[in-house]
Design a protein around this nucleic acid. Structure first.
Lengths: 255, 255
DNA sequence: AAGTGGTCTAGACCACTAT
DNA sequence: TAGTGGTCTAGACCACTTT
């Protein structure tokens, strides 16, 4: 790795109108590259939008859009009346997303879901509170195991409001494809969900099902889903092996 | 909760030019509210941009911006040549971010960092690999404990490349303020970082320091930070108590 | 061919910050 | 007052999808 080369190598700094890539994206990439190369350092002020317009021969709206892109990505901070400045790296901007989980199954790997149990049970106090129903009211109880290459990855328990007039039950029970949970074409009933992630020690049952000897740590992902009347209709949690699934992310400038 | 009221109550559906809120945000909120109310359901097509222009008396660019906002938020999917459609809820769009962690300490609560240990140690094989240095090369080793209201929250271990010509060491060692880790004004040396989150079983030392009886599960957050020459300069991990810190997020339409 | 979203222009006016 | 970013217009042209 060569040191002290921050300001020497200039990226190709022209907008090519014949390219497939739109001008606003080209400019955003040029600026990001210059920041990555050290031409502009954290705290430094970028050229003004008017300067960028002249320099690259594009209109104010287009420059604006480039700057907005970089600002959305947390690379830059635009301050009205002052200027646009390169942001220092911040840990708080890091975010882990479940897309990685979704990808695990879309990757054509040999994955499947096994329905361990499904029956109607009376809501206990906790379930009743979560689903906003009376204690003792009927719910559909589901237990499923998700595996990949015949190794268990996660275990799912959920309680659904039991309402024969709503088609959600069958939709939720359709577990033949993994789409069902992540890109369910039939989940037009669901408006929003709340998710919480914690860690947990596996209990005996979970340890056996997930085939890990106790004691073992795992992710605990709880969910509540609501319909378009803002009524909760599903509550449950996933438990998944951290050795089979970890989350990664990046912060700062990634060119 | 009243049922079957999806299409009746219309939100105030005019753009008010005297408002502080810009027109593009107002339109985005109007559309989001209509989706939340069920006027448009997942899979439904929104009015075309030309229609929205006429309907709300604003220019194409402004309508565009509203749609882009909703598309960025995952509420809507704009397809060239076809139209703009309401997206069904997708689990994969959920993301957990460390901002919550950062907030924990900015909230003016009684939080502090205790430096447990700091000294120069020779890099072992793993550290050498992570920091891209020779085995046996000197590194700064740090152990810190973060507490809140005199309860331990997380434990941090890190190895820094030992290079007297770089000021990073002092910057990293400046742990008197929590800013140091999250919004370090002196971290202009750092270009980017890679983060991984897993779960772990506490070992004896961690259990004692974090004051949780074994066996116990916790989050394990590993990090590598790079400078502007793309050289790794810091590697380490946080271990934090899941009972003191959990991550929550929302998916779908949140009005 | 008609309708859709995607990009871009060449300005305008405003709000804010610095001097 | 000059310079900055923030919003907005009223079109234009293009790429794509559908009929």
């Amino acid at each position: 790795m060569v040191q002290g080369t921050q300001n020497l190598p200039q990226s190709e700094d022209r907008i090519d109108r014949d390219l497939y890539e739109p001008a606003y994206a080209q400019l955003a990439n040029i600026l990001r590259k210059q920041i990555a190369e050290g031409t502009y350092r954290p705290g430094d002020q970028l050229p003004s939008e008017a300067q960028l317009c002249r320099r690259y021969g594009i209109s104010p709206m287009t420059v604006r859009r480039s700057i907005n892109l970089l600002a959305d990505q947390g690379v830059v901070d635009a301050q009205q009346g002052r200027g646009t400045f390169v942001k220092p790296l911040e840990l708080g901007t890091a975010s882990f997303d479940l897309q990685e989980l979704q990808d695990l199954f879309s990757n054509g790997t040999d994955a499947n879901i096994k329905l361990l149990d499904t029956r109607v049970v009376s809501a206990d106090a906790r379930t009743a509170r979560r689903l906003n129903i009376a204690i003792g009211a009927p719910t559909i109880y589901i237990r499923r195991l998700f595996s990949r290459e015949s190794k268990p990855v996660f275990y799912h328990r959920a309680y659904l409001v039991y309402d024969p007039t709503r088609p959600i039950v069958e939709a939720e029970l359709d577990v033949t494809s993994l789409q069902g949970l992540f890109a369910n074409a039939d989940n037009t009933i669901l408006k929003r969900g709340e998710l919480t992630i914690e860690t947990t020690l596996l209990n005996e049952e979970e340890s056996k099902i997930l085939e890990i000897p106790m004691p073992a740590a795992a992710f605990y992902l709880a969910h509540v889903f609501y319909d378009f009347n803002d009524c909760p209709i599903s509550w449950g949690w996933f438990i998944f092996r951290s050795d089979q699934l970890r989350f990664t992310t990046q912060v700062g400038i990634n060119d």
